[in-house]
């Protein structure tokens, strides 16, 4: 059991979708006068079981709305499954999307402390790692500037630098590498490879099949909330691509 980083058993997640675009008091009052309330249950995940060992890099692929992000949110303990059990052994660090958790009026340095603490570091640990974080983000000259003056690339680098310095055992990446320039993507890939050598667990959601092929040792293909395939990356990716091509033909 000690080797298992993430264990999901028969996990299902359903959302109640209301058809009103805004939930408001007016919406509630109006809906009381309708014949029946139109609430649809959307099954984001149904009966998903999987186990991921420490040190594995797992790609999560699938079309939009297939449940990848929900699965990641469940592992991050942000969403609780409707049924089934989840077990996560080890410290989880989600890589945040561009600018999430940053306050534009505060300096880069102040934001590093806030972000680091929210990801589970102590103030002292951040102070120790600060030089390394700033160096990785390549922001030596701008660390005392308010973040609102940063370019999106700078915000991205800083966010990534903090996350990789939280010393996580399990890293969750949701399409985070899609932004950022070539040089930065290379840097991230090198960091991911370093994490792999150190035996950390990585769960990566991506639509970029080349990237998945490059980093993931194992890939899980989700479709409509179910696992369609789970196995070696090359095999799963080619099955998925064949499926996607088939879908495209049908659409034409």
């Amino acid at each position: 059991m000690r080797d298992i980083a993430i264990l999901l058993e028969h996990v299902s997640k359903s959302y109640r979708l209301s058809h009103q675009p805004y939930s408001s008091l007016k919406g509630i009052l109006l809906s009381m006068f309708r014949y029946r309330r139109r609430i649809e249950v959307h099954q984001a995940l149904s009966d998903v079981s999987l186990s991921i060992q420490h040190g594995e890099t797992v790609g999560l692929i699938g079309v939009n709305g297939s449940g990848k992000s929900t699965l990641l949110a469940i592992v991050a303990r942000v969403i609780r499954p409707s049924t089934g059990t989840v077990q996560v052994n080890g410290r989880v660090a989600p890589l945040l999307q561009l600018g999430v958790g940053f306050h534009p009026d505060l300096t880069g340095l102040e934001n590093v402390y806030f972000n680091g603490i929210i990801l589970g570091l102590t103030r002292q640990q951040i102070t120790e790692r600060l030089p390394s974080i700033v160096r990785f983000a390549e922001l030596e000259e701008f660390i005392d500037t308010p973040v609102r003056a940063y370019s999106s690339g700078m915000v991205l680098r800083l966010g990534f630098a903090i996350a990789v310095h939280t010393d996580p055992e399990i890293i969750l990446m949701d399409e985070v590498l899609a932004v950022g320039d070539e040089a930065f993507q290379h840097k991230c890939l090198r960091k991911i490879q370093e994490f792999q050598r150190e035996g950390r667990t990585i769960l990566i959601v991506s639509h970029d099949m080349n990237q998945v092929r490059q980093v993931a040792t194992r890939t899980i293909w989700l479709h409509q909330g179910r696992i369609m395939a789970d196995g070696a990356t090359d095999e799963v990716v080619s099955r998925y691509l064949a499926f996607a091509e088939e879908m495209e033909k049908q659409a034409l």
């Binding site: 949110a73 991050a76 303990r77 942000v78 945040l96 999430v100 958790g101 929210i118 990801l119």
Partner: peptide, 9 residues
């Protein structure tokens, strides 16, 4: 809410 959707605390 963006932070709430991504990070546990």
């Amino acid at each position: 809410i963006q932070l709430v959707k991504k990070v546990y605390f």
